[in-house]
Write a protein that binds this DNA or RNA. Sequence first.
DNA 1: GAGAAC
DNA 2: GTTCTC
Length: 350
Amino acid sequence: MMRQIVTNKTRNQELADIFHQMAGCYRYLGPEQRFRSTAYENASGTIQSLKNDISIYAANAKSLNRLNNIGSSIAEKIIEYLGTGKIAAFERLKREVPKGLLELMNISSFGPATVKLLHENFDISNKEDLILAIESGKLKDAKGLGEKKLENLMRGLKLYKTGQERVPLSTGLKAGTKLLETIQKINGIVKADLAGSLRRGKKTIGDIDMVICAQKQDWKRITNRIKEIGQIERILVSGDTKVSFLLKQNHIQVDIRLVQVDEYGAALLYFTGSKEHTLKLRLLAKEKGWKLNEYGLFDVKTGEKLAGKTEQGIYERFGMKYIPPELREGRDEIELANEHKLPDLVKSAL
DNA sequence: GAGAAC
DNA sequence: GTTCTC
């Protein structure tokens, strides 16, 4: 629903960043290091999804080990970083892999092979070199660099420069439905839907939101499968209940949440938004002595769950007509639904 | 704790 | 690199 912006860099962020860079180094160093690279990428994601400062978990290597994707080796490096502010292995890697190349691998959607090619054949070692080379047209006939790839690269650069733009609904919808189709094939997924502004059919979207419901015991396996999807450029956050990543093709950010079966409607409602709409619903709930959150609709006094499995059920419990996502803008749709005066939506084939 | 899978 | 398995 919303893009996460990291303003002040926390220690977790810094560590996650280092591990992400280390992952990049290993990726650049060759296919033999492929698993090592993803291991660091996973660790980076785990740290980013941590709710508390890393030091809380870092009393000793043992407790760090309990975190997903953090084994003995990375645990040691975390402790090293907390103590000295540096990680020797990273300092070593930095000397082997030019920093500009690392940045290129992140923004360009080119793999290490192409970046290597650019570096060795065109003496391109950073973003600026690349821009100059593109503008001079000397990359035009390079082998392994088709027109299409070049185009992708330039878009990536542009996005990087302006810092993630919103994309037209049609683009988001195309990418989103394709992603949804891929993900729905994963075993154990009971139900999955797009949420956020994509589901509300806004003219432009900032990112792709998706809610998946499945048995809790399947969550980990499902998130692992999701992370293997070929359309992923890079993983941003990887926890048990949430996965975020950038799409290769267009660098759109994707946020996926896993929820329990009986929470699905509440979660879908919550992550579909708009913020204003769900806020109004929450206030309405409060008036009735209820509480609405992403887990369900509850009676505050008794704690009894009144609804949550389906969106329909929640609106029904409020005594109003189902409000289609397209109308959930926090204007007067709730009042209208209460009076059963909602306008009929003509379903448009988008 | 080695070995395979990822 | 981590994790699972034997």
